[in-house]
Amino acid sequence: MKELIRKLVETFGVAGHEEPIADLICDEIADDVDEIRRDTLGNVIAVRGVQNDGPTIMFSAHMDEIGLVVTHIDENGFLRFSNVGGVNPHRLSDQRVVFANGRMGCIGHERLEKVTDLKMEKMFIDIGCSSADEAEEHVSIGDVASFLRPMNDLGDRLVSKAMDDRIGCAILIQALKEMKDTPNRVVAVFSVQEELGLRGARTAAYQVEPDLGVALDVTGAGDTPKARRLDVSLGDGAAIKVMDRSLMTHPAVKGLMVRLAEENDIPHQMEVLEFGGTDAGAIHLSRTGVPSGCISIPTRYLHGPSEMVDYGDVRACVDLTVAIAGAENLDLRR
């Protein structure tokens, strides 16, 4: 599975520009699903068990990653930019970024009086050009760039850009491969523009009309020195979300996840996140409401170039996903 993860995290797919990662995912799952379609916003919606008469379970992992968008090219060929999704300027300084066409750039900033003056308006991307004309041969206003970082395998731990949420995509793809026969209709959605406000999941859920929604997404970890007080640790298993800013997990869904984890000896931990949201936030408010929850992957250094996950946690998340997909007699309406 590590090779799959490597391919996914190293592929380009900034929010709003998910085509390359969508193409890769479609290739990866082609043999494991009955049908695949892409919708207006670019969501990949794959169905397994089209004929099944059981309830429809929508799993959602978002394909998009955070990045930068070019807003101005100056006469000396420097690119000014804005953020795509939650990007902190302090974590951009001196990073390398790459555009969809492969052009690389590094990030510099204007002279500052003090470090706290660092704002995105004072930063620029240098793509090695010395005039606007030259720069415009490679990049146009509106083009987006992602962090340029490969995956590093540290054994139990994996580090890369875009673990958020390619690791969720990897888990969903792997689960599709490992799933046995199920009475349920399993709809795997690889959503777009999550980082811009859970947008893809919203239109996808409207189309899918699921009976149960499950997001697969990263969450923070509180196990680093003097970290934010968050009782989630790498290596303690799949995190079952109880709440975040977008969702109060439906009690029946939380109960189902805990029960399946216990029955199948899947390491798990409970998660209360005081910030952020996931696709489940959008899914559960679709139409007349959808009981929804989220399987979270504990991740350190979120929204930076070096997001770290634990491989054992990833395996646990795959197992839990497979277990949910295969669950019989699902009745969440009461």
């Binding site: 007080r229 709440m243 209360v272």
Partner: peptide, 14 residues
């Protein structure tokens, strides 16, 4: 909501 149970048994919350 409970966020953490400390080793002394005290409960942190959000």
């Amino acid at each position: 909501a409970v966020t953490k149970i400390e080793d002394e048994g005290f409960i942190r919350f959000t």
